[in-house]
Computed example of a mutant assay.
Amino acid sequence: MTVRSPAVAGLFYPADAAELSASVDRMLAEASVPDVAPGVPLRALVVPHAGHRFSGPTAATGYVQLDIGSVRTVVLLGPTHRVGIRGIADAGFDAFNTPLGDVRVDRDLVARALTHPAVITAPRVHAEEHSLEVHLPFLQRQLGDFALVPLAVGDVPPATVAEVIALFDGDPQTVILVSSDLSHFEAYESARAHDAETLQRIVALDATLQPTDACGVRPLNGLLTRARAKHWQPSLVSACNSGDTPDGDLRRVVGYATVAFHAPPASSD
């Protein structure tokens, strides 16, 4: 079995398993769960991917919505920070390791993704990438046993990402997870205004966001394109920026938000 080793354990989150479990469990316990009408399925989440001490509490407000009894597979799409690619990269591994153990990759579902011409297998794209890895400890603690489809999204149009998402979103036990932060390195008040405008556009399903609006703009615009086609209903769950954290620098902040997408009421979509 081939296993991807963690690249940012000890940097973006604790490398010690006991410390990591305690930290993640605390953030999940402190996260508020939004009110959702009964029987309205959660289809997708947008969650931030900075170091846990910065964006973890915001991300946790999304993870707590995942039900161990109803979510079996997570299709995780994140941007590429280290290695650029004109396409969407499968990692080529059978599992992703974290200090909490291995997360199984569903190679059968990855094979489905590879039927799309934009999807290739490129381990080097994933080797040092943090945008997917930082989510795994939260998913491990919230869901326990689940299968992963990890896809690193490079320079592709929103329609292409939407087509890949469409390969998976018909399964009620599958959730789409898009990894993205918001604005980068603006002053605190400027970032708050910028991110508020971006979030208004996200909940309006505006798939024309720019890289200055969100670093995960390519998977995010793809999700928004698919959400509009499927009539999914977005709602802002929580938002902040790094300046709201004890370690934040108010002169240069990064924005974070969690957005949930639900199927229309009384829909089996």
Rank of each mutant, 00 (worst) to 15 (best):
A9P: 05
G10V: 01
G10W: 00
L11G: 03
F12W: 10
Y13W: 05
E19K: 07
L20H: 02
A22C: 06
V24A: 08
L28F: 01
S32M: 12
V33G: 01
D35A: 14
V36D: 12
G39T: 10
V40K: 13
F54C: 11
S55T: 13
D67Y: 01
G69W: 02
G69Y: 01
S70Y: 01
R72D: 12
T73C: 01
V75P: 07
L77Y: 02
H81I: 13
R82I: 15
G84T: 11
I85T: 14
R86H: 12
A89C: 10
G92D: 09
F93Q: 12
P99E: 02
P99G: 05
G101P: 05
G101S: 10
D108H: 05
V110Q: 05
A111L: 05
A122G: 04
P123K: 06
H126K: 10
H126Y: 08
A127L: 13
A127R: 15
E128T: 15
H130M: 06
Q140W: 01
A147C: 03
P150T: 11
A159C: 01
V164R: 02
I165D: 01
A166K: 01
D181R: 06
L182V: 09
S183D: 05
A187I: 03
R192Y: 00
D195G: 12
T198M: 13
I202V: 15
A204S: 15
V217H: 11
R218C: 02
L220M: 09
N221E: 06
L224Y: 07
T225D: 03
R226W: 00
H231T: 14
P234F: 04
S235P: 07
V237Q: 10
S238H: 14
A239T: 15
C240T: 15
S242R: 07
G243A: 11
T245S: 14
P246S: 10
P246R: 08
G248W: 02
G248A: 05
L250A: 15
L250T: 15
R252G: 00
V254T: 15
V259M: 11
V259H: 07
V259P: 12
A260H: 00
A260W: 00
P264C: 13
P265A: 13
